[in-house]
């Protein structure tokens, strides 16, 4: 009787909706044939993992122009793998939800070049995220200001020297040379410049 429900847009949907309340209050003792048929139909149409996957309406083109073979497939291969995780990996990120996914595992086999390519060319994507994760696992850090990945190299010096270790920094030059380069002697590490991943 509420005026809102008098809306003609709601007929006959509202009537069907009310019917279901009756069933809820008094469920059938044994499953009627019609219900069994509907249940069967639901089973046949059961949504699968593709139906449940994250929607992608706009396909981002590669973020930086870079030649790629037309023979490479557009879809990423995401096969289900239930191989147990290697317990010898002790980095905390090794035990996160991504370590079990096939993409996460494939990334751990990629070399740095491939990881940087994915990071810079697939911006805003799940793949970029995983590449960043893998780089972090390998000890690289992302600088928010110059958008480069940096790596701290610690070299143990022979005993008897003034210092026990020598620290040098490298960064990956994605804009020009596409190579890892040593940082100049004037490089100063400032923690706040780096993304906490």
């Amino acid at each position: 009787e509420y005026s809102a429900l008098q809306n003609p847009l709601f007929r006959p949907g509202l009537d069907y909706w009310l019917e279901t309340k009756r069933t809820l209050l008094q469920p059938h003792d044994t499953m009627p044939a019609e219900m069994a048929a509907q249940l069967e139909s639901s089973l046949l149409n059961c949504p699968d993992s593709l139906d449940a996957d994250t929607p992608k309406l706009y396909q981002t083109p590669l973020s930086l122009p870079h030649p790629t073979s037309i023979f490479f497939p557009n879809e990423t291969i995401r096969l289900v793998s239930n191989d147990p995780v290697d317990p010898s990996k002790n980095h905390q990120k090794h035990n996160d939800i991504y370590s079990r996914t096939s993409m996460g595992r494939i990334m751990s086999k990629f070399d740095l070049d491939t990881l940087f390519f994915i990071f810079y060319h697939y911006q805003g994507t799940y793949e970029q995220f995983l590449a960043a994760r893998e780089l972090t696992i390998r000890g690289w850090q992302f600088n928010k200001l110059n958008r480069c990945w940096f790596y701290k190299e610690v070299e143990k010096l022979p005993p008897g020297m003034e210092q026990s270790e020598e620290i040098s920094w490298r960064y990956f030059d994605y804009q020009k040379s596409w190579l890892a380069r040593r940082c100049g002697a004037d490089f100063v590490y400032r923690e706040e410049e780096f993304e906490r991943i």
């Binding site: 993992s49 996957d53 994250t54 995401r78 079990r100 995220f129 928010k144």
Partner: peptide
């Protein structure tokens, strides 16, 4: 990372939540 309650409908992985700064 749960794809589906049934094995038969879990043949491909689903994208989990993630965040890109």
């Amino acid at each position: 990372t749960f794809p589906s309650p049934w094995v038969e409908t879990s043949r491909s992985e689903v994208e989990p939540r993630f965040f890109v700064p």
